[in-house]
């Protein structure tokens, strides 16, 4: 029986049926590890992040890495052509991936990527928004909520200031960006359910 692992953080959606579950997982981990390391490197550059306790740094990264990756890799989703580019560099149409058993998660990620891309943010704005996504005091397991909250508020103020300066006639952009946070949380929850299904299989 042919198997597929429909995640763009994989090299390809095709899975060698001869390989064991462990081998498939190892290959997948090998594929997404560099992207996760990049998220950690990004976090280290957020002013104030390294001042948080090591426990909270790990907790924020554990909880938020998926959401940061969704923002950083929004460009892998070609809304016009309805294709997704996997890390191996090959593009797959939504219909092809659907036939491979992709879930509603990919469709939701398409919708998210489209709305985010339509905001037309600069690299600097995207970077600051990504920092806001990562530093959230509402993640589970945070031990010093006040410190994380203070950093989060500083980052949100900086984002508002940057957006207001760059888009003086589009005041709704900042609000739209903040509304992306619950969208990302919802995608994160759907992703966790997918992981559970993958593990069960």
């Amino acid at each position: 029986r042919r198997m597929h692992l429909v995640c763009p953080m994989n090299t390809s959606p095709h899975v060698d049926p001869q390989k064991s579950g462990h081998e498939v997982w190892e290959e997948f981990a090998h594929s997404f590890t560099p992207a996760v390391r990049e998220v950690v490197e990004f976090a280290k550059k957020i002013p104030g992040f390294r001042d948080l306790s090591q426990h909270d740094q790990v907790s924020l990264l554990k909880a938020g890495t998926f959401e940061v990756l969704v923002v950083r890799f929004a460009s892998l989703f070609d809304v016009k052509d309805r294709t997704i580019t996997f890390l191996g560099g090959k593009k797959y149409s939504v219909d092809t991936l659907r036939a491979m058993g992709s879930s509603d998660l990919l469709n939701s990620m398409f919708d998210f990527s489209e709305k985010l891309t339509n905001l037309g943010l600069s690299e600097e704005e995207m970077s600051l928004f990504t920092a806001v996504v990562l530093v959230s005091a509402h993640r589970s397991g945070i031990e010093n909520v006040n410190s994380v909250e203070a950093l989060q508020e500083t980052l949100i103020r900086a984002l508002r200031s940057l957006i207001t300066r760059n888009h003086p006639n589009e005041s709704a952009i900042f609000t739209k960006l903040l509304l992306k946070l619950p969208d990302l949380r919802s995608l994160n929850n759907m992703h966790s359910e997918q992981l559970l299904a993958f593990k069960v299989h």
Partner: peptide, 27 residues
């Protein structure tokens, strides 16, 4: 399955990436 990050091996990757930097700073 309350902690998908740990199950993915993410925590290990994250800790190593964070610690690596600490070691560099200590050197």
């Amino acid at each position: 399955f309350s902690d998908p990050a740990s199950n993915l091996g993410l925590e290990d990757i994250i800790r190593k990436a964070l610690m690596g930097n600490l070691e560099e700073r200590q050197e």
